[in-house]
Amino acid sequence: MKIAITSTQNIPESTFDLRFGRASYFCIYNTENNSVEFIDNENINANSGAGIKAAEKVIELGVSRVISGDFGPKAKDLLDKFKIQMVMLDDDSQTISSIIKQLNK
């Protein structure tokens, strides 16, 4: 299964990004082979629709779960439509690798 985690940088030591649509990067963690990949958020500076575009992106990447700080209504609707689980965390001092560690517990 693939999990998307919003990230402020593109390395595993980066801190978690609370923003979904305006996250800097999406970390795609693949639970099957334990791999991580960082994807640029092209729509970080979009005037409108950043959230829905982020949802489009993660759906296209085939993730089943998204971990972020909060999801706007349009992004939520689209993620719901594709039955993607949304997990909200509010601690932005955590790193991506520590979040992945917790996932594997």
Partner: peptide, 13 residues
């Protein structure tokens, strides 16, 4: 320009 269109090819959406 307004990011109003969502197209997800693998999902035919």
């Amino acid at each position: 320009e307004f990011n109003a269109i969502i197209v997800i090819p693998p999902a035919q959406f």
